[in-house]
Simulated scan of single mutants.
Amino acid sequence: MTTRTIAVVSAGLSRPSSTRMLADRLAQATTDALTERGVTAETVTIELRDLAHDITNAMLTGFPTGELRTALETVTGADGIIAVTPVFMTSYSGLFKSFVDVIDKDALREAPVLMGATGGTPRHSLATEYAMRPLFAYLHADVVSTAVFAATDDWAGQGDGVNPLPARIRRAGRELAEKVAARPARAAASDEFDAVPDFADLLGR
């Protein structure tokens, strides 16, 4: 069986958060769909709230370090990406955008991406289309057709007859799985800082 890596990016600010809950369900739907296709999936979840300080430092210095650098390598090298953000002021969160800003603009080219968002009201459900989709289009990612938005009330329904969210999650997971299974394994984008020499070596330690 072929193994594929799915990077799950959650921009939830609280713990636990509905954003992480949606991210986990999308990841499960994707891995289930890949298993049906004879593909083994490994998911790696990245909580942006844990990287907030490193993200800010990277924006100020231009140098991602530590856990942030590892997270960037995971995302850019993944065979598929699930990106989920809370919606504030009708758009993705500042933390989510800041993380995307420190990704090299060519690193997600043709990478399969599934978008998800959470919010308090269904009135913001189109944020995935007018905010998130153009963002990933700019990065030339291969975004699946179905985006998933979950409002607070969506978590109350327990079945497909009451709440369409579970069916939408499964459909989005299948779409991402189809794109991932149809492609060869991705390799991490080259890091522009790998060639920077260590100053201790330059000084002869």
Score class of each variant (00 low, 15 high):
residue 26 L to K: 00
residue 121 T to W: 14
residue 142 D to E: 13
residue 193 F to Q: 10
residue 161 G to N: 11
residue 71 A to T: 13
residue 102 V to R: 02
residue 50 D to G: 11
residue 132 M to Q: 10
residue 24 D to E: 15
residue 73 E to P: 11
residue 106 D to P: 06
residue 79 D to T: 08
residue 89 M to I: 09
residue 116 G to Y: 03
residue 87 V to Y: 03
residue 37 R to P: 04
residue 195 A to K: 13
residue 104 D to P: 12
residue 59 M to C: 07
residue 69 R to S: 13
residue 85 T to F: 03
residue 152 T to A: 10
residue 50 D to E: 13
residue 74 T to A: 06
residue 104 D to V: 06
residue 13 L to Y: 08
residue 10 S to M: 04
residue 147 A to H: 06
residue 163 N to W: 05
residue 195 A to R: 14
residue 114 L to V: 12
residue 81 I to A: 04
residue 185 A to P: 14
residue 137 A to F: 09
residue 18 S to N: 12
residue 7 A to G: 06
residue 85 T to H: 02
residue 132 M to C: 09
residue 121 T to M: 11
residue 200 A to L: 15
residue 114 L to E: 05
residue 180 V to A: 00
residue 98 S to G: 14
residue 67 E to H: 14
residue 50 D to F: 05
residue 30 T to E: 00
residue 9 V to N: 04
residue 196 V to T: 14
residue 185 A to D: 15
residue 173 G to H: 00
residue 178 E to V: 13
residue 59 M to S: 10
residue 147 A to P: 10
residue 27 A to D: 00
residue 49 R to N: 12
residue 146 T to A: 05
residue 40 T to Q: 03
residue 76 T to N: 05
residue 89 M to P: 04
residue 59 M to Q: 11
residue 96 F to S: 01
residue 96 F to G: 01
residue 199 F to E: 07
residue 162 V to P: 02
residue 123 R to T: 11
residue 134 P to E: 13
residue 54 D to M: 07
residue 132 M to T: 06
residue 57 N to E: 12
residue 10 S to K: 01
residue 179 K to H: 07
residue 86 P to Y: 02
residue 142 D to L: 09
residue 106 D to Y: 13
residue 107 A to S: 11
residue 26 L to M: 14
residue 92 Y to P: 03
residue 12 G to F: 03
residue 156 A to P: 05
residue 173 G to M: 00
residue 108 L to G: 01
residue 81 I to T: 13
residue 56 T to G: 14
residue 133 R to Q: 06
residue 133 R to A: 09
residue 173 G to L: 01
residue 117 A to F: 02
residue 133 R to N: 06
residue 127 A to G: 10
residue 43 T to D: 02
residue 1 M to N: 08
residue 171 R to Y: 12
residue 126 L to K: 06
residue 22 L to Q: 02
residue 27 A to Q: 01
residue 21 M to S: 13
residue 101 D to G: 04
residue 72 L to A: 06
residue 74 T to K: 09
residue 23 A to H: 02
residue 111 A to C: 12
residue 54 D to P: 08
residue 134 P to L: 15
residue 200 A to Y: 12
residue 6 I to G: 00
residue 100 V to H: 02
residue 111 A to V: 08
residue 108 L to P: 04
residue 143 V to Q: 01
residue 17 S to W: 07
residue 4 R to Y: 05
residue 44 V to C: 08
residue 9 V to H: 01
residue 167 A to R: 07
residue 6 I to R: 00
